[in-house]
Amino acid sequence: MAINKENYTRRDFIKNSGMIAGGVVLVSLLNPFKLVFATKKPVGIGKWYGVGIDIEKCIGCGSCARACKIENEVPNEPFFFRNWVEQYTIMNDGQIKVSSPNGGIDGFKQPVPDENIYKTFFVPKMCNHCAKSPCTQVCPVGASFESPEGLALVDQSYCIGCGYCVQACPYGCRYIDPQKGVVDKCTLCYHRLEKGLNPACMMACPTGARIYGDLNDKESALSLFVKENNCAVLKPQLNTGSKLFYNALSQEVH
């Protein structure tokens, strides 16, 4: 082991490290931070879908969750949902109770007697179709992607079922379909939109608590909804660019 290392290795080492470092710098100069988010919002062209939910109108009937399961052939077990409803109950003593039995499909019961309730409400949940979606960002093969309309979709014939996106979604909106072995999630009923129909959950809602629309069109129902109401998104601190706007969202909701 006693060849004189001093002569070449150090130089080689420096040269090579220099080359590698240089390469990295070059690549990042050519492509500064472009890699970080999977899609870019198209400016002013085409549709850019978003969803609005009016919590004050939700009666917790679960029709949306049921219609969604049927429309999209989601497995019937209570562990797989593309959309579901949660019931929040904040008690007089400050305790927060949340429940979502079978995603709300079978309706809700209020476990707390009325006189102990400070406030209570339903929160329908679904995919946020984030503009900077953490889930499509981490898909290793590009099977989860964001469509040109701003919908986070899954190419099920290409998905490898690694579950990384399930971990990356802060809202718990994805699941692995146990039969197909691939991930599944809300598509905002892309197949219905293309046929001129409303998404199944919006069709099924008896009170019009859910709306969807084009955020690029400032006159669309959704744009007006966002403009006229005091809307908030879930977990804004994560900077997911969520496009699911809630009217009258309480701060207890995560």
Binding site: I70, S157, Y158, R192, L197, A200
Partner: peptide, 22 residues
């Protein structure tokens, strides 16, 4: 075709049958 994914996936997804007819 549009991004780092199969462009055909879009038509495949939108080609599914709608079950609720309104």
């Amino acid at each position: 075709e549009y991004g780092a994914y199969r462009g055909k996936a879009l038509t495949e997804i939108s080609g599914k049958e709608a079950k609720y007819v309104e």
